[in-house]
């Protein structure tokens, strides 16, 4: 893959909240059509990395390039508009909008990447029956489906999932993973944070392990599976 520009390239990223620094020169990239994960225990900087990419947190140093253009100085809404869809930790469904409204309110009119409401409902059949329910009356799994659907309807080039299956029942979790595989099959580039290393090694191409705001290990799924020490040392599994 050398020679092609990555879709997302993060270099020497430093960020924090007030006095406390969280990220120390973190670098990673996601290539077109690739599924990449961020692994690490709680508090290691995974969410801060994602928030820096999205412009929710302003980096103090480093640069972030998306589709070849520097984005780290852009306002958060403009970064999202460039084609990054975030499925945030805790879903953050709008409780005062119906399921249908949650989907269409922020959808792009330009469906050039092929995502429209019908296609999202095919991906998540349970949502079809809940279209006129309030967003907060859904189960955790349905909320996660809705959050993924909402992000897909912005027709992003990169989908970011923060804690993709956190707090979900095993069956629901399995469904979410299979859907992520389906999305991957469409050629979507995906960056995932999750603790479910086994599922991730099956789905993802490459992994970055974070420890105190730095990348301490990166490699392919095969390398991660082969290296048992990584899991015990940095992931506590």
């Amino acid at each position: 893959m050398t020679g092609t520009t990555p879709l997302l390239a993060v270099n020497g990223l430093e960020a924090g909240y007030g006095e406390s620094r969280v990220l120390f020169g973190l670098s990673l990239d996601v290539r077109e059509g690739e599924v990449v994960t961020l692994l690490g225990r709680n508090g290691m900087g995974k969410t801060t990395t994602i928030h820096s990419i999205m412009g929710i947190v302003t980096p103090t140093a480093g640069d972030i390039r998306f589709a070849g253009a520097a984005v780290q100085r852009l306002p958060a809404y403009a970064i999202a508009r460039r084609g990054i869809g975030l499925v945030p930790e805790g879903r953050q469904i709008f409780p005062n909008l119906s399921v249908r409204e949650n989907l269409i309110a922020t959808a792009t009119r330009n469906t050039s990447n092929g995502w429209d409401v019908e296609r999202v409902l095919k991906l998540f059949p349970p949502l079809r029956e809940r279209l006129s329910s309030w967003g907060n009356l859904l189960s955790g799994g349905e909320q996660q489906m809705l959050a993924i659907g909402r992000a897909l309807l912005t027709n992003p080039r990169l989908l970011i999932l923060d804690e993709a299956t956190e707090g979900l029942a095993p069956l629901v979790r399995a469904h979410i993973w299979s859907v992520i595989e389906e999305i991957k099959a469409t050629g979507m580039s995906i960056l995932i944070v999750d603790k479910n290393v086994d599922a991730l090694t099956r789905i993802a191409d490459r992994h970055y392990v974070l420890e105190r705001g730095r990348v301490v290990w990166s490699g392919t799924s095969a390398a991660l599976v082969a290296d048992g020490e990584i899991k015990t040392r940095y992931l506590g599994v």
Binding site: I56, P75, A80, G85, P88, P95, N96, L97, T106, A151
Partner: peptide, 20 residues
């Protein structure tokens, strides 16, 4: 819909790509 959504969660609306 956007207005109602941002009433409840403005930062989420910005992160989805809407200058509230």
């Amino acid at each position: 819909m956007l207005l109602r959504g941002m009433k409840f969660n403005e930062s989420r609306m910005i992160a989805i790509g809407f200058p509230t």
